[in-house]
Structure formats: C-alpha cells, structure tokens
Design a protein around this nucleic acid. Structure first.
Lengths: 200, 200
DNA sequence: TCTATAATCTTTACAGTGTCAAGATTTGAG
DNA sequence: CTCAAATCTTGACACTGTAAAGATTATAGA
C-alpha cells in the first residue's frame, strides 16, 4: 500500500472514479459531490478538473465503468451456460437484477438520467452498445432453439431487456406491490417475467 | 389575471407545485431549485418552508400530482374502451408512453428515485397504488376474455406494467437502438411489446 | 544533462444552493 | 376586538460547482 505523498497523485483519474463509486454506495446520488470525491482521493477540491471537465464528466466515467462491470458479469454467465441458451437467458437476467441490487445508486446513475447528455460521452455509448450486443446474442441463441419468437433479434432483445429493466426499476422504486413480493421470491419473479415471452 | 400583491399569497402551496412543474419542464431535474420555484411564484426564497418541510417534500407533492394526472389519463381511455378490453390494454399503455414523453423530467422525478424516501409520503404512496389498481382491473378484464394468461392478476399486471415501463425508461435514456427505432414507430413498438404477453 | 513546455495540483474566489432563526405581517377563532 | 397561529421576509450559514491564477512536477527536445 504505497501512499507516498507526492505532489502528483499518479493515478488520480481512476482514484476519483473509485472514490465516486464508494460515496455513491454510502451517501446515494444526492450525496455525491465533487468536493467529497476529491477529499476522499486525498486531493484538493479543484484537482478533479485536471481530469474531468465537470461533474457530469465524472458521472459519465462512473457510469461507463459500471457498464464495463455489467458486461463482465453477463458475459461470465453467458460463457458458463454456453450450451444451454435457456439457462443463459434466465441467468443473464438474474445477473442483471443482482448487479442493480448490489449498488442501486450506481444503477440509477447509469439508467435514470443522472447523466444528462450521454451522447456526448462516446465511451459510455460504446459500452452500453456492447452490452446490448451481448443480450442480442443470447436472444438469437434462444430463437435458434425455438424458445423465443423468431423475427428481428434486436426487437426481441429490446423487449426482453425492457421486461427485466422495467421490473428492476419498479423494484428499486418500491413500486412492486407488497402482495406480489409475498407470493414469490425475487428470483421467481424474474423467471415469471421471462416465461411470458417464451414460446410454449 | 388578478395579481394583488398582498403579503399572504393565498394559494402558495399549489402555486409552488405548478411553478415546480414548469421549471422541471424547462430546466430539467438538475435545474429545479427551491429558490427558483419561490421566485417564479413571486415569493421570497424561504417562503416555501411554510408549506413544505424541505425540497424533498415539494418533489413529493409534484410527483403525487403527476400520479393524479396519470390516473386521469389512463382512466379516461379505460372508460372509453370499456367494452373492448384489448383496446383498453394497448391504449392505456400508449397513454402511459405519451405521459412520459409529454414531460420526461417529471416522469423521471416520479420514477427514477429523485424522491428518496417515498414511503414517508402517504399521499404519494396512495396515488401510486391507485394507478396500479387501475392497471390490475384492465388486466383482469383481458384475462376474462382469455387474451392474457390466467393466474394472479397482480403478478400479470406487474409484468405488463414492467414491460411498458422498461421500454419507456430505455427510451428516455436513449438506450433504444437506432436500428430498432428505424424499423418501427413508437406506437408499433409498444404494440410489439404487449403482443409478447398476449395469449395466442 | 539542461531547459522549457505541458501536465498536474493548490489556493483563492464567487455565485448558487438548501435550510434555519428571528422578525414582520396577516388571518381567524374566541 | 384581541391575540395566537399561520404566513411570509430578511439575514445568515455551510456546502456546492466551477473558474482563474499560481505552484509544483514530469517530460520531451536540445
């Protein structure tokens, strides 16, 4: 743990992203301030401006890193169940739900408009697309098996993603009714959602 | 336009909510400040505290009013297509999409965790539940016709809502892929989503 | 190796924010 | 008519994002 107190930090950019994620997990979106992030990284309050144009740029970096990790998780289960596309589908969805619940505030940052002009951050856009491509591949594998309706895979992928995403959003907002949550576990609920779009 | 400049405003509470909605539409979530709202209502910066405990309380009021209007819209189409449950379903979903697009930032306030402890605002919770009940009724009407899978209606309602909600969220976040948007109109996309959960 | 330019970081400053406390004004119940 | 409660203003405070100017360090080119 070499913490030499040089004038130059050495890896401030990544340190700021990391500090941001931690503050997000502890204090939520409204508790995330540039100054807190800077202090946590052991640097003056204006130092971040050497690496990020403004607060939005830091948020973009945090979101992009989030998408990177999300991709890794989904890709891991996709690899694991390579030979069983149906398993791929449910497990990927479940990984998505778990990712959201592991750090709800980071998830909100990624998907709830905290980042205001995402189009201006190419890395963010690229990483988001990479995730969608992965979902599309899983969908196509299921279509090939006749487990999902045939047709344009991007449309079906959009649906599948939307179903799981909508469920998560309502869950995080506390909009899943009490009676529903009493009847089923989260896992069962996710499976129930996916069953709806499955053929036969 | 009676703008008597009395010391007491008369209907400040509602005026603040209205001003908040307008600022939200113009400047977005990040541009919504208590002080701006107060100024727009023609009142000093601390006046809102006579009616709202803090900024969150104002946001709760704005959200609650939003749910009230959403209910009215959905209820209107539910009444209109009383005798055609399938029409009810698609038109209700479409009304939901339109409501979101009419004022995306208000929609985000209602559904994206801007309001942090929604459980602490009973009016908000009640209004949200009222909306869910309405959806459930539409679902049950469709189940009775065999248009939707039978079974616990709250579960199916949750799914249907989640599907539409997820689609809207991805849409507002710009996460609907370009190729998808070129193939279909928004209306067709919503219909496509709902077709997936319909029987036969 | 020396030097100058760029990159990085600190200090200082400013306007805007949410919120509180104290006081002014008005309303309305008794 | 009175006075307590409701409403609104003024002033203050700590915190925020961000810009400008200066200090420190790294690095590329001589």
């Amino acid at each position: 743990m070499p913490k030499k107190k040089t004038y130059h930090h050495g890896d401030l950019k990544n340190a700021l992203i990391k500090a941001g994620v931690e503050i997000l997990a502890k204090d939520g979106v409204s508790g995330l301030s540039l100054r807190k992030v800077a202090m946590k990284a052991g640097v003056s309050h204006a130092a971040p401006y050497a690496h990020f144009a403004d607060k939005q740029a830091l948020i973009a970096a945090i979101s992009t890193e989030g998408f990177r990790q999300l991709y890794e998780r989904i890709n891991a289960v996709a690899e694991k169940y390579k030979s069983q596309p149906e398993k791929q589908l449910i497990e990927a969805a479940w990984a998505y739900v778990q990712f959201a619940m592991d750090d709800p505030d980071r998830f909100k940052v990624m998907f709830s408009g905290v980042l205001e002009k995402e189009k201006e951050y190419p890395d963010f856009v690229a990483e988001a697309q990479r995730n969608f491509q992965l979902v599309k591949m899983i969908i196509e594998a299921n279509q090939a098996l006749g487990r999902l309706r045939s047709g344009a895979s991007d449309l079906v992928a959009q649906s599948a993603w939307g179903i799981v995403h909508g469920f998560i959003m309502l869950l995080l907002e506390g909009q899943i009714s009490h009676t529903v949550l009493e009847k089923m576990s989260l896992r069962e609920l996710v499976e129930f959602q996916l069953e709806q779009i499955q053929v036969k």
